[in-house]
Amino acid sequence: MTTSGIDPRGPRFGAGVTAVLLAVVVLLGPGVPGLVVLTVVALSFLLGTLRGAEGTWQGALFKRLVRPRLASPAELEDRRPPRFAQGVGLVVTGVGVVLGLAGVAVAVPVAAAVAFVAAALNAAVGLCLGCEMYLLLRRLRPASAG
């Protein structure tokens, strides 16, 4: 684990891969196959939450297949924001998986749809929806200082 930072294109590439999988879940609709794919995505987010975006299989894919073909990045990025985003992805897809297992089949494509928009935005324009929401969520909690 480096503290110096990661290639900012890694998490965006990973988000693109994740978005494709989530699109597959949307296309599969309610049912077991969709639930299985969504579970795979949720587990990837769990990995990313624990180890950072570069510690997921999407991150490994980027390092192995994509990065060698690219010029070195103009600048490195702090690894904490993408890791936080992984946590947000885990919450959204995790809720879908839990509800899906509990018998609420429609929750699977719905959770996938929400996560798809977030992942696709991250991949396409670099918007981190979870990071944008961070301060709004933080403001809801009582101030500890200041």
Partner: peptide
């Protein structure tokens, strides 16, 4: 914020 990549830039 800590979890804010564009803040650094």
């Amino acid at each position: 914020a800590e979890v804010c990549a564009p803040c650094r830039a």
